[in-house]
Write a protein that binds this DNA or RNA. Structure first.
Lengths: 214, 214
DNA sequence: GTTGTAGCGCTACAGCTGTTCATATAGGAG
DNA sequence: CTCCTATATGAACAGCTGTAGCGCTACAAC
């Protein structure tokens, strides 16, 4: 009889070593979301969270930065998936742009810590996070579709998308970083930004009057 | 003869103990700007930087958080001073709004780390940083002056200012967090945002054509 | 049954951290 | 002169960190 007591949490079968890798990434994302910053995350805390020896992390990631980077890449994938799902669920170029944009906001609201890490981590300067450019391309494409459909004044789609991204990111960032301040609903602000920056009129918005202001 | 060697860096005279406090704050700001985050800053590193015993910091600040908070408050004061100086140097409500807004950008460009800490530190959630509301008031006032002068369509100045702040903060934040990406000039983007969000036409801008787009 | 190896743990090291307590010293007040 | 206090230091504690090296065990292949 092997001495049980607190066993070593069931080793994975052969060829399935990646399961631990997945668990590590999941725990890393959980902790990053709680902490809201990568500097405070310790490799040991991750290992502790899933009840694994700290050194076992090194079997899957060369060092701490690689671990965080892998987690952030996964995180970005999830976010983009949510955006794309929202876009395809909506009908019409304007509604799709609006849905994708709003999804960014709701995702940030649900995972404020991860939003912070993804966009504010100093890893952005130390590591190659070019995968994040995908968001820029997606937004630009959505804006261009509105222009092509004649639902927004024709302009440089990349520039307009940049302005929109900056504004939405700013609005979200302020809310994420100072959650206790009395912010107005994000949805209204996004609709204003869509109207003023892109020039579209979000028809399925709650109150179409807001678009007639200017 | 007192045993010199490496002396204890000249104690301050009676009643001038606050000089060390100032030095500590200055060093804290220096380090925060380098690190671009408060989590990585250690009280001991600050003490080391000005060649003072770590415990001497406790004579002026009860703990680490208080030190960072004091530094950030000073930081905010400096920023607001720069904004106000830029505003008073400009003539006309529109130019003043534009000058104040652009100063935010140049300040962030000069002190990217401090900008990050000031706006992204998790201290925002743990501590009372209500002093930051000053920026909202200043911006709202500047926007309102444009409206009062008939240079911008009349609207809820607080809402318009919020949108402008969000957009500018977003534009700056993206540049600060990913400095290696090929960003277009901030000045042009700010002018677009002023035009589209506030409805003013920055007359003294380099190229007035850009305002005629929409 | 023997053996190789994938999968993971244990121990240890050197270094850092925030904070506390007791101590020293210089210089003005009396 | 003496004394007191503002100004600063030093040693120490308990805890954390990333990482290296070596050891163990269960299973698949032979």
């Amino acid at each position: 009889m092997p001495p049980t007591g607190r066993q070593q949490r069931g080793r994975n079968p052969r060829g399935e070593g990646n399961r631990l890798r997945e668990e590590i990434i999941a725990a890393t994302l959980r902790l990053l979301d709680e902490l809201g910053g990568d500097q405070a995350l310790s490799l040991r805390a991750v290992a502790r969270d899933i009840e694994v020896a700290a050194t076992s992390v090194y079997l899957h990631f060369p060092d701490r930065d690689a671990l965080v980077l892998a987690a952030l890449e996964r995180c970005h994938q999830d976010l983009m998936l949510a955006v794309q799902r929202a876009e395809t669920a909506a009908e019409g170029p304007v509604a799709r742009l609006r849905a994708g944009t709003l999804t960014l906001g709701t995702w940030a609201h649900d995972h404020p810590g991860l939003y912070k890490v993804l966009h504010e981590s100093t890893l952005n300067q130390r590591a190659d996070m070019r995968f994040k450019e995908e968001l820029a391309l997606t937004t630009t494409a959505a804006v261009r579709r509105c222009m092509d459909a004649g639902l927004a004044p024709r302009d440089d789609a990349a520039v307009v998308a940049l302005d929109l991204r900056a504004a939405v990111h700013g609005a979200v960032s302020m809310r994420v970083n100072q959650p206790d301040l009395p912010w107005p609903p994000l949805e209204e602000q996004v609709d204003r930004l869509l109207t003023k920056l892109v020039g579209v009129a979000p028809e399925d918005s709650a109150d179409p009057r807001s678009a007639a202001g200017r």
